[in-house]
Design a protein around this nucleic acid. Structure first.
Lengths: 214, 214
DNA sequence: GAAGATAGGTGACAGTTGTTCACTGACTAC
DNA sequence: GTAGTCAGTGAACAACTGTCACCTATCTTC
């Protein structure tokens, strides 16, 4: 059946991977919209027509990359949420997990950050849709926390969005930092302090309304 | 001299504007990297070669757009910083000013949000450079506030970056919201509550370090 | 009002793009 | 062992791209 290895399927997957990897490499210095089908095929070492055996067009390939990239990201989000310990520990492991993810899959992360606001509609919607789903997942998790007691569903979601946005911006900052420099640590520290500040706001938040000061 | 009107210079500026506007319109549905010189010229109603009289290439046009767009953004930032009143008032006018800016120049804002992480290096660097400058400007302003007393320069900058990122994300959210819908109000309210939360964190921040709880 | 400057237009070029079609040859299933 | 499936190839196409040298018509300057 289709489950067993099969030298045919194996070669097929290999070519598909070559196309995806070639695209990721090219996307380091351009955006999906300006990526050419022939360009990708050439970089992957296959004929242009072979591209069609795997993807309808570049947009289709883009969506495959979104799925791939956000699978990794989702794993990191879940690991972050599953972390136990006090707030300080959880925040620092969150930053560390993000740093590890960027180190492991820089091209994927760059792709997500870029195409989140990119020029290809369907891909952009795929990314934002997934990030929204992450926000909802985070919100559900926040609801379980004692700190979330008394918060409205809406407030939990707005906090979750803040966390998700911060996560993406941190990823972007890691990408911008030179890989070997101490810039990397600076990004870590800044991200961590921002998380602490948001956390402090969360602790002292008055869910009711604006005019309920200390 | 070159200062007086001059029918020649006038026509020149008119064409230049036509090119910029045509580009902005086309950029609504694609990114700068995939924009063609001929495409822009065609949309502007001029011959392809006329493009060269105004810009070296598309990248050059992009940088002109960055200057233009960030001039507007800068004005909004300054207005926000110059707002007087208590924190609550300042935050809500900040959101209102941002909403007004997006309504007035949606194409410019979309361009900035998109190309901030876009595929054209020099343009991306121009945007991030300017946004960093905004962050420094905000940080200087935060230092003047009584709330900022005792904060290190680094901490002020990390807070300022949080504000600037939040501003850009809010602008993006406004763009995504249907213009006439109540979605627009939802974005306003979410952004405002996020600002309140950050503000609460700022009030209860302990600049010294992590383990200095209440 | 003549001479010069210059914004914009013409036509052409070599190169690239996406897509099509008919094809080859290795693998699979019977 | 043979017939069929199918991933990948090669050549060809019309359309498009950025760039070029050259031309035109209008404004500006003296």
């Amino acid at each position: 059946m289709s489950q067993t290895a099969g030298a045919r399927q194996l070669q097929r997957l290999k070519t598909r991977r070559a196309l995806l990897d070639a695209a990721l490499a090219l996307l380091e210095e351009q955006s999906l919209g300006s990526l050419g089908l022939r360009e990708v095929a050439r970089a992957a070492g296959v004929a242009p027509t072979a591209f069609y055996r795997h993807f309808r067009d570049i947009e289709d390939l883009g969506i495959a990359l979104v799925d791939e990239a956000l699978e990794n990201l989702h794993a990191t989000v879940r690991s972050t949420l599953a972390t136990s310990g006090d707030a300080e520990q959880r925040m620092s492991t969150a930053v560390e997990l993000m740093a590890a993810l960027v180190r492991a899959y820089p091209a994927h992360i760059r792709f997500i950050v870029r195409e989140r606001h990119g020029g290809v509609r369907r891909v952009r919607e795929a990314v934002t849709g997934q990030l929204d789903a992450f926000a909802r997942e985070v919100a559900e998790n926040l609801a379980l926390d004692p700190l979330g007691a008394g918060w409205s569903r809406d407030d939990l979601l707005m906090l979750a969005k803040l966390y998700v946005d911060h996560m993406v911006m941190t990823a972007s900052a890691f990408l911008a930092a030179a890989l070997e420099d101490n810039e990397w640590d600076a990004v870590s520290r800044t991200a961590l302090r921002q998380l602490r500040l948001i956390h402090a706001g969360r602790v002292h938040w008055t869910p009711a309304g604006p005019a309920a000061g200390a």
